[in-house]
Amino acid sequence: MIVQKKICLLGAYAVGKTSLIRRFVERMFDERYFTTVGVRIDKKELSLDGHDVTMMVWDLAGEDDVTRVDLRRCKGASGLVFVADGCRAHTLETAVRLAAEAEAFAGSVPCVLAVNKVDLAAEWEVEESRLDDLAARGWKIVRTSAKTGHNVDPMFETLAREMLPGAD
């Protein structure tokens, strides 16, 4: 049986949402930055624990000083990925705030917080204490790198497992 699921990626601008999806779906990474306008939809078929899962991945345009994330696009999502840039601490707070706001549209669905760009250790800005604090409050945090592919597949697969029928 094939199970279809919609997931959404949210976060501040240029945190690497599109790059994470591209790494996950196409196994590619591009150094150039392309801003996402509106929404972009990709598809990834997975085989997990005996289930065939078709993930429709909605890449929502990032939030900046003038544009808010259109959280209405999260309606009907079975899972949410909040993405922050480890080299810009304020993007973590944006992700946390978006998580609180998105619940009104998506309901209480499985979530994961991807702290991206872990390959740029020298420029790392997010404090471990803050991540520990969030983890203590129940956040599932995954340190990822779209550039190297580090933890990208596990992050999506963890979310997918939580969305499958029979998951807690």
Binding site: I41, K75, G76
Partner: peptide, 22 residues
């Protein structure tokens, strides 16, 4: 309607299509 997920897709004979899910 809410999720945008494809439930069914039918095509007339001879018509080329792209990925219906997307």
């Amino acid at each position: 309607r809410q999720t945008g997920l494809k439930l069914q897709h039918r095509v007339a004979r001879g018509v080329e299509t792209k990925d219906a899910d997307m």
